[in-house]
Design a protein around this nucleic acid. Sequence first.
DNA 1: CTGTATTTGTTCGTATGTATT
DNA 2: AAATACATACGAACAAATACA
Lengths: 87, 87
Amino acid sequence: MAGERLNPYGHDPLYVQLAAVLRQRIKSGEYGHLDPLPSEDRLKDEFGISRDTVRRAMEVLRKENLVFTVPHRGTFVGPRPDEPPTD
Amino acid sequence: MAGERLNPYGHDPLYVQLAAVLRQRIKSGEYGHLDPLPSEDRLKDEFGISRDTVRRAMEVLRKENLVFTVPHRGTFVGPRPDEPPTD
DNA sequence: CTGTATTTGTTCGTATGTATT
DNA sequence: AAATACATACGAACAAATACA
């Protein structure tokens, strides 16, 4: 399903709620390892919140090493892979 | 004329102002039916704004059916023409 | 067929201002 | 004051389709 909604009157801030939804989707396998998460714009539309709030949620997940972000590419499921040797 | 300027301190957001300028150019006939609008890059240079802002303005005009956009071709004056039959 | 240029599409990074709680 | 939230705006990078020489 894709119909979760956030509760603007809820106990937790929206970005915490969104992080929880995304965390659950990752744990459940709905978003698989190295899959890209929906873009910030898509999530903002899906949940009817601002991009700013989406970014805060992403930040939470990044700090948990559940996702990593590649600039201009997207945010992906999993810990950030090791860099290949430069040489 | 082609020298309109947007007012960064104005009451309306820049993308609303730009949409108004382009709307006027269409209504006046400066941009004729099925003419391509200047590209996003040209408009961004002409008005000294970001492409992001240009795209927001385009979105406004698209919603008004004043223009339609063909990916990788441009944005054209008028409502989107009917598709020819696929067959 | 092979590049090159043009143009829109997509995505994240960042900053500022305002309002609300 | 601090945290949360939204809107606006600019920047940067690259993808992909199209057109043309």
